[in-house]
Design a protein around this nucleic acid. Sequence first.
DNA 1: CCGCGGGCCTGAGAGC
DNA 2: TGCTCTCAGGCCCGCG
Length: 293
Amino acid sequence: MPELPEVETVRRGLLPVMERARILKVEARRPDLRWPLPPDMADRLRGKTVVALTRRAKYLLLELSSDDVLLMHLGMSGSFRIRHDESEHLPGAFTHERSTAQPHDHVVFYMASGAMVTFNDPRRFGFMLLTRRDDLQGHPLIRSLGPEPLGNAFDAAMLAQACRNKKTSLKAALSDQRVVAGLGNIYVCEALHRARLSPKRQASTLATRAGLPAPRAQTLVEAVRAVLGDAIEAGGSSLRDHRQTDGELGLFQHSFRVYDREGQKCVTQGCRGAVRRIVQVGRSTFYCPICQR
DNA sequence: CCGCGGGCCTGAGAGC
DNA sequence: TGCTCTCAGGCCCGCG
């Protein structure tokens, strides 16, 4: 469930302890995540300074003083947790970490400040890999990504253009990371409800025959921006696995208008519909068949 | 090239 | 209570 808002929440939580901070060492406790951790990861990170901690789509990018970039993905159940070394007698000994280790703690970053940053991922769909900064934009995982939905490049003209020849549904199009990067099942459903557009609508109807944006394309762009902004402000959505870096839950699940609300009343003002669940491309879609057209 | 469906993985929750 | 089954979904890959 980490989609863009959850990843962004994690990034903001990690900033104070990781950005412009030095990594003393990295411990890879369980290397067999979705892909094996780079065997030389610990060596390449030891002693390096984090120049910046950024995000692209659902990826976290740890940019290092060595011009390496550690590309990290939370998969389905990944989380980061910050703890601080509390051993008084052996500074830097990190005895605290050993005493608080949890099941599925796969990677631990020991910062020079005494902060410990632990990556936990029960289902191991997450991964970390190293690339050179110069190779990042051309990296297979990055190169085909569409624009950031909160950036200037994501607008009605661009969205209409990307969808104008698509025979698939709006749900499938918005879930496609090549069209716009960072949305997942939850926020696609939520954005479509806010825009009052049916998830079953053909994606090409965002464009006129001339390829120009139809008015609903602008509506959808604004809905995507709004739902992501609100979700980030709430610290993301915690259904099962998402946690902020201090262990607190995100709160946006309380603001869902359709997701996981099958059978409940539609919250649109004046709408008498009820939320329905259907399956599209193998995933649950929640929507109101009355006000979403 | 496109889009669909399977597979990866574990824990939570339902049902018997 | 305890077992088994299903489902959750981000992403890659193979297939048609």
